[in-house]
Design a protein around this nucleic acid. Structure first.
Length: 917
RNA sequence: GGGAGCAUAGCUCAGUUGGGAGAGCGCAUGCCUUACAAGCAUGAUGUCGUUGGUUCAAGUCCAUCUGUUCCCACCA
């Protein structure tokens, strides 16, 4: 017998992976003889350890990569990591805080050295975890966003954009995080609804003629008010436009008193219907007010320090934290009789996505990237259909973001990242250069100082698709592998990254960075809740790998899931995956047990060979002489190959996997394998059966390899077919191709008929509770000559699948019985149960088990069903509209069914009559 | 405030261009049938969220409503 274990053992995965690495199977070369297929892995942050999202995404990419590799492409999957500017800096600041240190204690240089240490330690962790999943990346090409090459690309891009005037320095309203003491981009601001208050106040008119009422959610910004605005058409306030109000805070306050009087202006931004129709204008601390300020030339008064406390512009409130200033101002306004009331409201507050502290809009001198010209071709790439998303709705998100995009604030007041290559001379002239310039380009001064700020982390990742290939040098890699084929990522990354890679790619490479964007859903916990650290509901993918192996995890991610929709990670699905792989293992084990030991070899796994591993027999007319079950399974397999390939091409990976899983379990294991067992016991019939068995199995292993690489490699090599011996790995075997010769509609129809007969008999056995050990004999009465042929050649199949004793075939004068036909014995009608199937009637002699009443009920039920079917079809065929407009082949098939149902009904009626109904 | 997704069997979800409702898990019954009990066989369960519309034909297309999730957003 065999020494192959009964259960699949996933603990050899590491060993298999090492072999792949040693043999260099993942390596990609510039190879003009082949078509390239490239995927750039979204580089995980060096602060992360592997979470479910990474694992899912890696599985998606690996499935695509492995498929294309087998299809003969020169595939490259570029891995790497991201320095993740703020995220990493925050982590390291926390770490040094435990030692009682701050950034400023250490100074820039020492702090950065410390972050590099962190990078050394954590950067490799996630890489090894991704390897454990089986990812077939070209690890020799691994990149880090702060590698020398990538940093050079960043400098190059910055310089070119600056020289073109696309990068500029300007004073604009930016999102300021008071905790992290840096600006953040619009994309990094999260809006969270929270309970808040709308405070109603009034300002006195400067001429003493009354008051004007308004409301605000941020009373402290009143310190920076430089106007009051109303709508130009608002007749309530028409008379006030041009007048002034007095800011009560600055009366009797020395030089600040000059700011105490501010004008009432009109601007159509104001909504007449909302509140009192009056808005206070704080240009330095609100985006809308900023714009209104620009339109009306209002002064911008910044009232905040970088840490969120009130600065000198706030007069007596100077030094108070913003929250305290708010309370104090409300109290003071109340005392002055200018407070009206407080209204509780819920409103959205902008918070920083890293620290969740409320973001403060304020005016700062920052570096910006001008977006209008860059955004336009990026949008066109999508609207023209060149850039494709797997679902239209993701494209809409992309397009919408580009439509509303504003200039990108790219400077950050942190240390970890690419330092902005701008140098200032004492006179404030700016020189931008890739290396430290000797002198100011404007005045020649040599006393230069580099900008302290670093670039937004997404600036370098925006260059990822080409900076990783050697840009700005014209490398052969760049020429061969760019543009890439697919970008696989999550929805929330569209505006962070996808958009920016596209416009940078177009800008610097003249071509979009990828043709397809594959957006996948989120893996949630079993209750559908998003996994998060704070909730502690995360599933560690490595725990699953430890317990079940990477193949099980990968299969669970993809099997039957729509890739674009969110999925719940449930334990029972993990177990189903394991069970399926065990099924695959055992089917292979069965096939191997039936192989002959190799000549001169020892019996056992690896030393067995299939009787025939060449599949020439499939290519010729010989295929048509195969037994019907072989022609059926080969035809079905052929359709599977076509469907799976199409699904993968369309990036519908879950459906592709699901189809192979269903095929292996239902058609190959539950039907074909059982059908073929009798032939394996006959020396003459066995070799051909083994050919088909191994061919179908091997093909399924290939189709499954992209999703479950380890087990398929193991089994492919164990089966030791010609291709396995030639290539030494399933990774380098040829992806199966659809072959029209193998399509056999007749065989499919025949086997469907056999299956129906088998199911019918099994059903009756179960209903009548025929003991499993009792082998009853059957007599088949075929409807016509072709049915007679079919059953004549399939008596063994019927016997084994129905667990029957003798199977008799009754052929009439026009029957076409072959040598296998056995004449039926005489049976007394009283003990017989009749089963009507589409192409035959089958008699089961059950003697005492036949209960006339039950039999009548069974046949009556069948009669009702068939009548119903006939009525449905007749209804359709009588419908003039249907007959006029439905496609002809549909009508033809309905007519065909009608004939069949009518025939069956007739037989059932006759049986009922025979029972005396 | 704007936009999008989802709603199908007890549970989790498939359902490709409209053409007789599916899977897994669970449940019921019987089986250790010499690949697999992580298995095999048989069975039960659905006005496909509501109301309309288009069509010969709607789970599928359109509209509406309800519930739910997510994204975007400067309403003082």
């Amino acid at each position: 017998m065999t020494n192959i274990p009964k259960h699949y053992d996933p603990f050899r995965e590491d060993e298999i992976y090492s072999r792949w690495m040693e043999r260099g199977y993942f390596r990609a070369e510039v190879n003009p003889a082949k078509k390239p297929y490239t995927i750039m892995m979204p580089p995980p942050n060096i602060t992360d350890k592997l979470h479910v999202g990474h694992a899912f995404n890696a599985t998606v990419q690996d499935m695509l990569i492995r498929t294309r590799r087998m299809q003969g492409y020169e595939v490259m999957w570029m891995p790497g990591t991201d320095h993740a500017a703020i995220s990493t800096e925050v982590q390291v600041v926390k770490a040094i805080a435990k030692e009682g240190l701050t950034k400023n204690d250490m100074g820039r240089e020492k702090f950065l050295a410390r972050v590099w240490e962190w990078q050394q330690e954590y950067g490799s962790m996630i890489v090894s975890q991704i390897k454990r999943l089986g990812a077939s990346c070209d690890w020799e090409r691994e990149r880090f966003t702060m590698d020398d090459g990538l940093s050079a690309a960043v400098l190059e891009a910055f310089e070119r954009l600056y020289n073109e005037g696309k990068i500029y320095r300007g004073e604009k309203l930016v999102n300021w995080c008071v905790k992290c003491a840096t600006t953040i981009s619009d994309a990094e601001v999260e809006h969270e609804d929270s309970e808040g208050a709308l405070y109603h106040f009034q300002y006195p008119l400067a001429d003493g003629s009354g008051h004007i009422a308004f409301a605000t959610t941020r009373p402290e910004t009143m310190l920076g008010d430089t106007a009051i605005a109303v709508h130009p058409d608002d007749e309530r306030y028409a008379a006030l436009i041009g007048k002034a109000v007095r800011l009560p805070f600055f009366d009797n306050h020395g030089d600040l008193a000059a700011r105490a009087e501010i004008p009432i202006i009109s601007d159509s931004y104001v909504d007449k219907e909302y509140g009192t129709g009056v808005v206070k204008i704080t240009p330095a601390h609100d985006p809308n007010d900023f714009e209104i300020g620009e339109r009306h030339n209002l002064p911008r008064v910044n009232i905040l320090n970088d840490d969120g406390t009130i600065n000198a512009a706030g007069g007596k409130y100077e030094g108070l934290p913003r929250e305290d200033a708010r309370e104090q101002i409300i109290a003071d306004m109340t005392q002055l009789g200018l407070y009206i009331r407080t209204e509780k409201i819920t409103h959205a507050k902008g918070t920083h996505d890293r620290c969740h502290v409320v973001v403060e809009p304020l005016v700062k001198l920052q570096w910006f990237l001008k977006m209008d010209e860059l955004a336009k071709p990026a949008l066109e790439a999508f609207t023209s259909g060149q850039l494709k998303f797997n679902k239209e709705r993701f494209g809409k998100i992309y397009a919408h973001w580009l439509e509303i995009i504003k200039d990108w604030c790219i400077s950050r007041q942190i240390w970890w990242g690419h330092r902005i290559p701008a140098y200032y001379c004492p006179d404030g002239h700016i020189t931008v250069a890739k290396t430290v310039p000797a002198a100011c380009s404007t005045c020649g001064a040599t006393d230069l100082r580099q900008d302290e700020d670093t670039l937004d982390t997404w600036f370098s990742s925006a260059l990822w698709p080409f900076s990783t290939l050697g840009w700005p040098d014209k490398t052969p890699e760049l020429d061969f592998f760019y543009k890439t084929d697919v970008l696989s990522t999550a929805q929330e990354i569209i505006f962070f990254w996808v958009v920016r890679m596209v416009f940078m790619g177009i800008k610097f490479m003249g071509e979009i960075p990828f043709d397809h964007v594959l957006i996948h859903g989120t893996v949630r916990d079993e209750n559908g809740i998003k996994m998060s650290k704070s909730l502690g509901n995360g599933i560690d993918p490595l725990d699953i790998v430890k317990q079940y192996g990477a193949d099980v995890l990968r299969l669970t991610f993809l099997n039957g899931n729509a890739v674009d929709s969110d999925t719940r990670f449930k334990q029972d699905r993990v177990e189903f995956s394991r069970n399926f792989l065990n099924k695959l293992w055992n089917a292979s084990r069965f096939v191997m047990m039936n192989m002959e030991p190799a000549a001169g070899g020892e019996a056992g796994e690896g030393s067995r060979v299939a009787d025939a591993e060449d599949n020439d027999y499939l290519d010729s007319a010989a295929a048509s002489s195969l037994p019907v079950e072989d022609r059926w399974i080969l035809s079905r397999l052929n359709e599977l190959v076509r469907d799976v390939t199409e699904k993968i091409d369309a990036h519908e990976l879950g459906m592709a996997v699901g189809k192979v899983v269903d095929f292996v379990w239902d058609e190959y294991c539950d039907w074909y394998l059982e059908m073929v067992k009798p032939r394996l016991r006959e020396a003459a019939a066995k070799p051909l059966a083994m050919r088909t068995l191994t061919h179908v199995l091997t093909t399924c292993l290939k189709l499954l390899h992209p999703v479950v690489p380890f087990i398929t490699e193991d089994l492919f090599l164990a089966l030791n077919g010609a291709e396995a011996r030639a290539t030494g790995t399933v990774m380098r075997s040829a992806w199966p191709l659809f072959d029209a010769v193998l399509h056999d509609a007749a065989a499919e129809k025949d086997v469907d008929a056999l299956k129906e007969a088998v199911r019918g008999v099994r059903n009756i056995r179960a209903e009548r509770q025929v003991p499993a050990g009792q082998k009853i004999s059957l007599t088949v009465f075929p409807n016509d000559a072709s049915a007679a042929d079919l059953f004549a050649s399939s008596l063994d199949i019927i016997r084994i699948l129905c667990n029957a004793g003798d199977v008799f075939l009754s052929v009439g004068v026009d029957g076409a019985g072959g040598a296998a036909v056995i004449a039926p014995p005489e049976i007394t009608p009283a003990g017989i149960l009749s089963l009507v199937v589409p192409n035959a009637t089958i008699h089961l002699p059950l003697d005492s088990l036949v209960d006339t009443e039950k039999e009548r009920a069974r046949l009556a039920k069948e009669q009702k069903r068939l009548s119903g079917e006939l009525a449905r079809i007749d209804g359709k065929l009588a419908n003039k509209g249907y007959m006029a407009k439905a496609p002809a082949d549909l009508i033809a098939s309905e007519r065909e069914k009608r004939v069949q149902f009518a025939q069956m009904l007739e037989k059932v009626n006759a049986e009922l009559e025979g029972l005396g109904a």
